[in-house]
């Protein structure tokens, strides 16, 4: 189990930032991702693995429609 934005999500072997975003259907273009407080740049989404127990933030940068 991992935490995404403070809510539990089932972890699976080989989960990357990219696969997590896909599973969550987080398609918005302006998302800032941090794993355990460490910022992950967009170009590393495919290659960065999420580990069981990680605290992930996927912050959508939109405060105004």
């Amino acid at each position: 189990m991992i935490q995404v934005n403070g809510k539990p999500m089932i972890w699976s072997e080989g989960m990357t930032v990219a696969s997590m975003l896909k599973e969550k259907n987080y398609i918005y273009a302006k998302i800032v991702v941090k794993i355990n407080g460490v910022f992950i740049p967009v170009e590393k989404y495919e290659s960065t693995f999420i580990h069981d127990g990680d605290d992930v933030k996927a912050i959508h940068m939109l405060a105004g429609g």
Binding site: K7, Y26, K57, A58, I59, H60, L62, A63, G64, G65
Partner: peptide
Amino acid sequence: WLIFMDMVNNQ
């Protein structure tokens, strides 16, 4: 417009 801050980001 606070939907992402609230519902998605849980901030």
